[in-house]
Amino acid sequence: MPYSKKVIDAFRNPHNYGKIKDADGVGKVGNPTCGDVMWLYVKVKDDVITDIRFETFGCIAALASSSIVTDLAKGKSLSQMLKLTKEDILKQLGELPPIKIHCSVLAIDALHEAIYDYLLKNKKLIPEEIEKRHQTLEKEKTAIREKYKGWIEKEEELHQDDQE
């Protein structure tokens, strides 16, 4: 496998997977059409992430990144975690093949979206950068949905051809 030992270890024994039913914030990123989907749940107390879990549909790099981001975030303050970048994940994972870097970005996005959700629900101030990133992700989601819709329509057209 074209992965470092750290990636394989994280993939083989992922930490913190599963759902938090009464989560204070949930971040849902990715799209199964493109490959990876990451759902991240956080419990927050006094601006500190007290518990964090993930559910991921994805490849080795995505699962490893999910596990690493939850390890990094547990017990940390929200403000600290809003500064987390993909480089922090990559540092923990050793290396990722260039084509898999987007998996570490996905993990950061999932975490920031979960925090965004928490801040929004609790009517707290949302930092500008996080707001911006949220808007970008929403736009991407719509774009992918559109693309996917086109694909479905094309399939339906083909199907009609079959029936004729």
Binding site: M1, F11, R12, F57, G58, C59, I60, A62
Partner: peptide
């Protein structure tokens, strides 16, 4: 579940 994750697990 995702194919590469299955193939990767089998690989191990």
């Amino acid at each position: 579940i995702e194919g590469e994750a299955i193939a990767g697990s089998l690989d191990l």
